[in-house]
Write a protein that binds this DNA or RNA. Structure first.
Lengths: 131, 131
DNA sequence: AACTTGCCTGATAGTAACTGTCAGGCATTA
DNA sequence: TAATGCCTGACAGTTACTATCAGGCAAGTT
């Protein structure tokens, strides 16, 4: 059982963001204790993780909300949820390969600069370098 | 030799964004023809690619600008550039492993929904499902 | 000559998803 | 009694675009 602060620490999401998500209806199931304080159960944490996952993969808040609404609707929406997750995964995999490409480029640059440093040569790539 | 539109098409960046970057001093070397039109050389394209790379990896515009200013300063800043690229690469690699984790989670969810669909079982994970 | 197209500029407003900050309120704990 | 932790609401600020409008020049087409 976690307060919003505990969740924030545990999942490395700011408290502010969690409240922002809460206000946007991202945690419709979370119970409150008699003092009106949100209490997240272990199971709820898994849910927050999914939300974090969807967001971090670039799904916008509107679509996250849609997913949540499917969940509220119940088992009749399982295939819609399946589709949404699957499409999101496909996009994430594209991002992954794109990211790998960019890392390769960074690596190339890193090595290039490394060689320049070691050889005391001029940077002939830099278009701003006087010829 | 490319106009801004050609570059936009070739590198899949919107014309608007390229102009935005240009206004922010991201392409200090680009020449203009007699009609004041920006002409990107083959070499300049490589530069735009680097900018795109740095941005897509999450480096903010301020830091991109800093990198560019190092380049303008010339060979005396090579080790600073090396450091910047190296740190950026490290962050990108962290992103990569984070993304891989999230994809695993999506994959798990996808398979879970798949099984539900095939077995016509109830979704026991959904905290909103009536018990 | 008139028109369309492609490039240029500047200005302004809108967007998403936070992020920061203040103010006020209730309840538990020191 | 005071500090702490949670709650709420409101509103301004941020980043990096993105959209839209307006006006202008130059080259090619009709």
């Amino acid at each position: 059982m976690y307060t919003i602060k505990n969740v924030a620490e545990k999942l490395n999401i700011s408290e502010h963001t969690l409240r922002f998500w809460a206000k946007n209806g991202f945690f419709p199931f979370v119970k409150r204790n008699k003092n009106n304080i949100r209490i997240f159960e272990e199971n709820d944490l898994e849910w927050v993780k999914i939300v974090k996952c969807l967001r971090s993969v670039g799904l916008d808040n509107k679509s996250v909300k849609k997913y949540i609404e499917y969940c509220i609707e119940g088992d009749s929406t399982i295939s819609k949820r399946y589709k949404l997750i699957k499409e999101t995964k496909t996009k994430a995999e594209l991002q992954l390969s794109e990211l790998q490409k960019q890392i390769q480029l960074l690596n190339y640059k890193e090595e290039y600069y490394m060689k320049l440093i070691n050889s005391h040569a001029k940077d002939t790539w830099n278009p701003m370098n006087k010829k």
